[in-house]
Design a protein around this nucleic acid. Sequence first.
DNA 1: TAAGAAAACGACACTAATGTCATTTTTAAT
DNA 2: ATTAAAAATGACATTAGTGTCGTTTTCTTA
Lengths: 206, 206
Amino acid sequence: MSPKVSQEHKEQRRSNLLKAAREVFCEHGYENTTMKHVMERAGVSRGGLYQYFENKEDLFEALIEDELMEVVEGSIQEMRKQQGSYWDVLLMSFLGESKEATNDMDALAPSKLEYFITGRNDESRKEHARKRFLQAYQMTVDIIHEGVKAGEFSPRFKPEVIAKSIISHIDGMAMDHAILDSETIQLKEQTEWLMGYVKWGLGVGE
Amino acid sequence: MSPKVSQEHKEQRRSNLLKAAREVFCEHGYENTTMKHVMERAGVSRGGLYQYFENKEDLFEALIEDELMEVVEGSIQEMRKQQGSYWDVLLMSFLGESKEATNDMDALAPSKLEYFITGRNDESRKEHARKRFLQAYQMTVDIIHEGVKAGEFSPRFKPEVIAKSIISHIDGMAMDHAILDSETIQLKEQTEWLMGYVKWGLGVGE
DNA sequence: TAAGAAAACGACACTAATGTCATTTTTAAT
DNA sequence: ATTAAAAATGACATTAGTGTCGTTTTCTTA
């Protein structure tokens, strides 16, 4: 009597839209992407898209929210055991499993910066941006504090400032990378240098 | 027989428009500012504004071009004499005359970032952005090279990468500052730490 | 295979901004 | 004062995008 379309199909469609959205956002950036771009890329009608997302902002939020989920991690202590040292935990959390700097950059990063910077006068977006910054900061500073407690780090400078500085430097590289290319900004080598001076700043193993 | 309006008056009007433009760009950011905002702030009609600037992009370009002029400086050698050391030249070029870090940030900086990042798919804007980056880079790396030649610096890391890194870190702080506030990101202390690790990285006076 | 609920469609009305242009006003030289 | 060149005005046509809504299609259950 009450036949709904299956939940899986809805999720499938939704994730298909998100996939298309990610593609066009990467190509055109946030501001220059229109709902029409997304519709066309996804092969879906106007109404079909609006069924799932109220507007472009809602769509983009959904996109970056999905990723925030993935970053949720286990406890620092646990990671310490896996990685061998707090320094390695720090390396891993910024460089990934390999702990190696590369020239790669999240293709959506420029659009994210764009989204937050153009929305800096919008209270709710600002709040969201603050949350993301503080989340990254908190994770970093927690690792550092643990490292200090364990006697692994002897910081030459306030850990809070070093943590914020790592984030700002990375944001800056993302920013510059959006406009220039990774060879010009020497993303890989900058990242190595970043890790080098942080190691010094934290007095790792001294 | 041929009465033109005086050149001074035109320049006066133009600079008045630029002043108004700067104000509204600072308030609303680049994307969210409309020509109407500028007209109203300047107390000028639509046609009056378009007489001087073809469109928003042209207007903004004029605004940031004016500033680029001011940065034109004397030779590095000369500054060395004034400042006492190449390290002080470097400090001065990033922190200004006082050579002290502060919590202040150019109010137009967020709009500039916005302008370049939203225009990253536009070849001419991209070119402009590249030019600005390379100009800042060149100045920095030149100072460092001079310092090395003079035996004042013994870098622990490639000077080119350190130079780019300073720029990226500063861009990142501008970025984060656009969204958060200078207390949260601890602009002053981050800047002090930035100068601290660069000093170490360059091996100043070792 | 019939029914009806929800999904998908796409035409449409609306909005907000742009850049133009015929007209009016101002200006400085005569 | 007069004049003509240029500046300034503001109404207007145009454009590009948004979000809605009545209609059609699709799917599941009975």
